[in-house]
Design a binder for these strands. Structure first.
Lengths: 199, 199
DNA sequence: CGTTGATCTGAACAGGCGTTCAATTATGCT
DNA sequence: AGCATAATTGAACGCCTGTTCAGATCAACG
């Protein structure tokens, strides 16, 4: 009853699959989800449009998978960093990590913020939950600082949103090789973050 | 030689013109520039697609005009406010004004930030210049505070970008009738802004 | 009231869209 | 070598795209 084994699943899939995601990432970030056609993605991969459907059920799911992977990577990377005990070091670490991680993935970050409206309600909910989890980790740090009396913040939720928005702004203008190094930018932002929450 | 006067120029234009801009504004903000067709805009106005071309040379210019008008309104409204002499009151006024103005025009703000890539290079340059003018006014306030020794900021350009990004974040989550009033939000943000630049 | 010209319609243009699928090719296993 | 099946092609489906334009419609003026 043993049926002969066929080709290992995804023997090409292992090459074309990542290429599809990379091409979609690049094109979505560059032109926007709605302005990119499946045929353009296929051309970038070097394949016909129909072949893409071996790797995604449809265009929107391709977008969703890019976003989901990005946010899961973000949460995993942050978990790997751990959290320091003391509020100021913990917040400093969060600031440094956020700027670093987002600077390494400008395309993923851009898409994850700009293309939310192209998700179905269910997929949108998944992404929002992941993002909310990340925000909550910052809120926890802020709350700990309040409890220990070293932070003065009237509303941790709003403060977390304000700080993340501020840090995200780096991606809109920072370019490697410009006037400032990333380390200098991190220092400047840490200075503002620290003072804005300090008691 | 007096030729009989024809219909006053734009006698319908005065009605349809604004309607076109309003429909485009609403649809672009809701679905994104690339995902909205001229026929959808026309349907919202109650007209055929061809009629739109009495009011805009093409789709992209319609977007550009919305952005340009928005930023010109922003600069004019801010100029009308004047600037206080003392750095802290000036910065407080900037914070209050920014949150207020942007809260009143969520659709314009959204479009002006999200659809930049759909502009031609020339049009993009115009928008960037207008935005840069606004940013520079904040930089001026910050510089004045440094000169007077009441602000401690290592880099006014970065600080201005950081503060504006932070304030823009309000639009992504604030909803009238929610947990906080706009006045409360303004107070919370002013607290963070003030501390983040204070000497 | 008749004329004038702004406004609008409706059709056409040439092309692109996401997605499906039978047929073909390529691959790795026995 | 031969087979099972993954991977890909290429054509087709029905529909939508921005823009143009000749002709119809309309409102206000002399």
């Amino acid at each position: 009853m043993l049926r002969p084994m066929a080709r290992t699943q995804g023997s090409h899939s292992g090459i074309t699959g990542p290429k599809v995601r990379e091409a979609a990432l690049k094109l979505f970030a560059d032109k926007g989800f709605a302005a990119v056609s499946m045929r353009q993605i296929a051309a970038e991969v070097g394949v016909q449009a129909g072949a893409l459907y071996n790797y995604t059920p449809d265009k929107q799911t391709l977008l969703f998978d890019l976003m989901k992977t990005h946010l899961e990577d973000l949460l995993a990377a942050q978990e790997a960093e751990g959290t320091r005990e003391m509020p100021f070091p913990a917040l400093r670490e969060f600031t440094r990590f956020h700027i670093n991680f987002h600077n390494e993935r400008p395309e993923e970050v851009f898409i994850a913020y700009m293309e939310l409206r192209n998700l179905s309600p269910e997929n949108f909910g998944v992404i929002e939950t992941l993002r909310r989890t990340y925000e909550r980790r910052l809120e926890d740090i802020l709350q700990r600082g309040i409890d220990k009396g070293v932070f003065a913040i009237a509303d941790t939720r709003i403060a977390a949103m304000a700080l993340i928005a501020m840090l995200n702004g780096v991606n809109t203008w920072f370019r490697e090789g410009g006037r400032l190094s990333l380390a200098e930018v991190q220092e400047l932002y840490w200075d503002m973050v620290r003072k804005s929450v300090a008691a």
